Amino acid sequence: MTVINGQPPFDVVRTAAWWLVPKQLFDGEKLRSGLAVRIADGKIDNVLPAEEAGRDGLPVWHTTSLASPGFFDIQVNGGGGVLFNTNPTADGLRMIAAAHRKGGTTALLPTLITDAPEVMEAAVDAILGVVGSEGIVGVHLEGPHISLERKGAHDPRLIRPMDDKTISAVERLRRADVPVLLTLAPECVPPGTIETLCAMGVVVSIGHTAADAATTRAAIAEGARSVTHLYNAMTPITSREPGVVGAALDSDVYCGFIADGHHVDDTVLRLAVRSRPVADRMVLVSDAMPTWNGPDHFSLYGETVRLEGGKLVNRIGSLAGVHIDMATSLRRLVTTVGIPLEEALKMATANPSRLMRLQESVGFLRPGMPAEIVLLDYGNRGC
Rank of each mutant, 00 (worst) to 15 (best):
R94I: 01
R94Y: 00
M95H: 13
M95E: 15
M95K: 15
M95T: 15
I96R: 01
I96L: 04
A97P: 13
A97I: 11
A97N: 13
A97L: 13
A98F: 02
A99M: 05
A99N: 02
A99T: 02
H100R: 05
H100K: 00
R101K: 15
R101M: 10
R101V: 10
G103V: 02
G104I: 04
G104N: 03
G104R: 03
T105F: 10
T105Y: 05
T105G: 10
T105E: 09
T105R: 04
T105L: 07
T106L: 14
A107T: 05
A107G: 09
L109M: 13
L109C: 11
P110V: 06
P110N: 03
L112N: 08
L112A: 12
L112V: 10
I113E: 01
I113Y: 02
T114G: 04
D115P: 03
D115I: 03
D115L: 03
A116S: 14
A116N: 09
A116H: 11
P117Y: 12
P117A: 12
P117D: 09
P117L: 09
E118N: 13
V119T: 15
M120K: 03
E121S: 14
E121G: 11
A122V: 08
A122I: 10
A122H: 11
A123T: 14
V124Y: 08
V124D: 08
D125K: 13
D125Q: 13
D125H: 12
D125L: 11
A126Y: 09
A126G: 11
A126D: 10
I127F: 00
I127R: 01
L128I: 10
L128H: 11
L128R: 14
V130R: 02
V130I: 13
V130W: 01
V130K: 05
V130L: 02
V131D: 02
V131R: 05
S133T: 15
S133M: 13
S133A: 14
E134V: 05
G135N: 06
V137F: 08
V137W: 11
G138H: 10
G138K: 12
G138C: 13
V139R: 11
E142W: 06
E142L: 01
G143T: 02
G143P: 00
G143R: 00
P144W: 02
P144E: 00
H145Q: 13
I146H: 03
I146Y: 01
S147K: 10
S147E: 06
L148W: 10
E149F: 07
E149Q: 12
E149S: 12
R150K: 15
K151G: 12
G152P: 00
G152T: 01
G152A: 04
H154I: 04
H154E: 06
H154F: 00
D155P: 00
D155H: 11
D155K: 05
P156V: 04
P156R: 08
P156N: 11
L158E: 08
L158A: 01
L158K: 12
R160H: 08
R160S: 06
P161H: 12
D163G: 11
D163E: 07
D163A: 06
D164A: 14
D164V: 08
K165C: 00
K165P: 02
K165T: 04
K165H: 07
K165S: 13
T166H: 09
T166V: 15
I167T: 12
I167H: 12
S168G: 07
S168M: 11
A169R: 03
A169K: 07
A169H: 05
V170D: 01
V170A: 04
E171G: 01
E171D: 09
R172F: 11
L173E: 00
L173P: 01
R174L: 03
R174V: 07
R175L: 11
